[in-house]
Nucleic acid binder design. Sequence first.
DNA 1: AATGAATGAGGGTTCATTCAT
DNA 2: CATGAATGAACCCTCATTCAT
Lengths: 211, 211, 211, 211
Amino acid sequence: MVDSKKPRTAPKQQRQQELIKATIRSIARHGLAATTIATVAREAKLSQGIINLHFQSKQRLLVATLEHLSTEYRDSWQRAYADAGTDCVDRLRTLAHVDFEKPICERNKLAVWFAFWGESKSRPIYRKLCSQIDDEYRATVAEVCRQLIGEGGYDHDWRTVSRGLSSMGSGLWLSMLMDAGRLDRDGAKQVIDDYLAGMFPNHFPSSGANR
Amino acid sequence: MVDSKKPRTAPKQQRQQELIKATIRSIARHGLAATTIATVAREAKLSQGIINLHFQSKQRLLVATLEHLSTEYRDSWQRAYADAGTDCVDRLRTLAHVDFEKPICERNKLAVWFAFWGESKSRPIYRKLCSQIDDEYRATVAEVCRQLIGEGGYDHDWRTVSRGLSSMGSGLWLSMLMDAGRLDRDGAKQVIDDYLAGMFPNHFPSSGANR
Amino acid sequence: MVDSKKPRTAPKQQRQQELIKATIRSIARHGLAATTIATVAREAKLSQGIINLHFQSKQRLLVATLEHLSTEYRDSWQRAYADAGTDCVDRLRTLAHVDFEKPICERNKLAVWFAFWGESKSRPIYRKLCSQIDDEYRATVAEVCRQLIGEGGYDHDWRTVSRGLSSMGSGLWLSMLMDAGRLDRDGAKQVIDDYLAGMFPNHFPSSGANR
Amino acid sequence: MVDSKKPRTAPKQQRQQELIKATIRSIARHGLAATTIATVAREAKLSQGIINLHFQSKQRLLVATLEHLSTEYRDSWQRAYADAGTDCVDRLRTLAHVDFEKPICERNKLAVWFAFWGESKSRPIYRKLCSQIDDEYRATVAEVCRQLIGEGGYDHDWRTVSRGLSSMGSGLWLSMLMDAGRLDRDGAKQVIDDYLAGMFPNHFPSSGANR
DNA sequence: AATGAATGAGGGTTCATTCAT
DNA sequence: CATGAATGAACCCTCATTCAT
């Protein structure tokens, strides 16, 4: 008499992952302000009580969700970076593109990132998590830029370039969030590529889009 | 013997402006989710009832606040653009810098922008207002870029450049929001200037920061 | 530059009458529970403040409204009674019909009567006013019944008959309130007349409706 | 060692019945206008939240309360009618008396009926429920009257008589509501009986109260 | 006499959390 | 491990009342 659909009990960690996924869907659908224990439970098709059972409080679930996104983000760019070999050009392009690859760059997740950013000024815990993840990423980008500038004899400040690159990344996310139809992931990559081609003309080819 | 206290009654529009200002402070301080009628009233040093008296509902106050920011933003760049003369270079630099000028670029207001962006996916009314204001700005930037690219013989797509420029603007806002101490308004302008110098080397001077 | 529509000021008593009329309309339209200072002021086309100016409080306005109805009711039946001459039959018919004559028996006023009756159990002030007016009326009816029973040799208790007659009156009001289309003032009078014909067959003619 | 306290949780329907009972008590004690979620919860000795948990809104609780009274009323007279046998006289007396039998004719419930009647003009939902219940009852009364009039050769319109009878019923309720001390249930039945004796002298005995 | 902006207590409702099952 | 009935604090909003004009 086993119900094949979903087991009544599940390993702790798997349940928690389900709930985090449900939280992401709920924030994307209803916004952070309108996300309640009830909306999350409904997305997860589980009862209300289960959230406090696994996360003690709504607040902790939200933090766990942000940590989930952060970890996923870090893992993604670190894996991509490791796979990119040792060439500065490859490394920089890879790092710059990773913001727009699939597991990271889904519209639901962008909505969640912005939801947390929107609350960051008033919530130190969010701000700390967000800053940290951004700092790590930008430090690596900066290091690659520094190397490329040194090799290529460019007249740029590596700190400025890395700041600009990572800023452009989150700025493009905003465009994708606000109007998914007008800017897709490939379009965003092209904006990034044009920026790199402009800053490092000897290393990155011009797209020639205008010809 | 002037009584410096505020009068018990005030012109309608002035009261509404006070309340919008108070809303901005409240969102910056507590976040959008934790901004209540009570927190706004406290910021305004007025009673709770006054918000429904002037705005009918909390929701309308929030929309009015977003409209206030939108209008202020549009007025700012349009005035700056009109004052910049007819030179493309001046115009582009002016437009690019206006994001970081004083009435617009206060940390409180950045927090409010991100708060609304964070709810935009689930609130069409916010998304519409935000998209519209961004589209107008970017259309003007794009037009200037198109002209500059044509004059200067650059190999850029003007749409891509304007998208990149405006994205970098909001991305830099995020950095300023998250860690005001590490990136100030002048630092942000320099990132922008370096981008322009990279893309349009014949028109914008290199900052030479690295020399 | 005289505004011919409505004088800005009016004699005290006239203003109060206007407000009571407006209260009756408001209760009929919105119910007693949903009648507010604002709805009354709107019905009267006057400002909100005027009610407290003339009646000190909403509660007093309501009491004044009930007193107005009571007085109007008493004046009506007393005048009719005085006009009816000295014949018991005429007197009884007149008293019985007065509930369904025009100034008294308007649907708006019936709604107000039932609104106050509905609150009477919990509001001694309403109950007292309502009881009193009913007692006076029924005492007079009872006296006429007593005389008629004595003269006509009927085997009725005059107290019971008068109780029945006045009860039928308010019961018919309920029917008229609930479904004005199905029972009008003439229909109600006929029910009353049939009752009288049944109880006092030697004095009141049968309507012969069934023949 | 039975714990006499009520259990923390209860079957859904039982809880709802408790809340409806509490609502009746609250309306009787405070009136409909002053009946709040808080007063009902206090009567039920439960928390405020439970009302929205079971009825979604205060409005629905009130409708459910009216439906409860309606159902109880209908069930009562239908059961009594079924038990009365097939004799017209028995049937009519039974129907006429049922208004004044115990489960129906409690002063608290009378207060609730009048409270809803008082709001009926402005609340179609109340009016519909009240009209319906009254129509059903009166239709049955009318049918019995029609039969009795036919059998007994009376010169009455059966519609008029049934209207008068049911009107007298609600009118007597008003007397009982306003002054419970002066008219009790037996007194009311006697008024009804005298009316029947007057209208149908060959079938209903005169009470002879006046002899 | 009359107005209407302003107040703030109290209304209905939501929802994070608890807990008996 | 999982549920969902129950709680009660806090939310948004209404509205009787006050008061400067």
